[in-house]
């Protein structure tokens, strides 16, 4: 009887605890790497306009894209379950989307790291459904794509 209880209630609680401990550490490390890489690319902006605004002529242009599939941990999924009862903003999912978008933009830049700017950048988000049904909630794919341009810097 007590082993059955342990399996029924212990396992989900264990998963939530693992999600809380490991998940928050992974998220912290991810944010650290995002901030570091964003700083490295700060002079190569991703613009949503079609014009680069550069004074000189453009030497070459080509398509750059980057994508990432990211999911939340069990603890945040558990928290959002409570939110669904009372309604309101689900803050625990905001960091998921934020990480995914910033990572996708960084991967787009890293696919062509020597470009001077990335114009007409588009972000597209889609949810990924999992074969295990409800397990798929909280998994998103973000694609960032744009045109990488090189300026003609020669005088």
């Amino acid at each position: 009887m007590s082993t059955e209880l342990l399996v029924y209630f212990g396992l989900p609680i264990l998963l939530v605890v693992i999600g809380r401990v490991v998940g928050s550490r992974l998220e912290r490390n991810h944010y650290k790497s995002i901030v570091e890489r964003e700083f490295r690319f700060r002079c190569q902006p991703a613009l949503s306009t079609k014009e680069s605004g550069a004074s000189g002529p453009v030497r070459s242009a080509s398509l750059a894209s980057g994508s990432v599939v990211i999911s939340v941990d069990h603890f945040k999924r558990f928290l959002s379950g409570f939110r669904m009862i009372f309604g309101g903003e689900i803050r625990s999912y905001a960091s998921l989307i934020d990480r995914a978008r910033r990572e996708a933009v960084l991967r787009m830049k890293e696919s062509q790291p020597d470009a001077h700017a990335y114009i007409n950048t588009r972000l597209e988000t889609s949810t990924i459904s999992n074969a295990a049904g409800n397990e798929g909630t909280g998994t998103v794919e973000v694609l960032a794509y744009g045109t990488a341009v090189h300026y003609d810097l020669a005088p």
Binding site: L15, I18, G19, V22, G23, L26, E27, H30, S65, S67, V68, V69, I70, S71, V72, D73, H74, K76, L96, E103, I128, N130, A131, A132, E135, T139, E141, L143
Partner: peptide
Amino acid sequence: RDFAAGLKNIVGGELKGYTELLQESR
């Protein structure tokens, strides 16, 4: 890939198998 992604779902973060799959198809 689905099984590996199911395990990764516990702690959250990037699901590399799916990222690769979608990049290949794109």
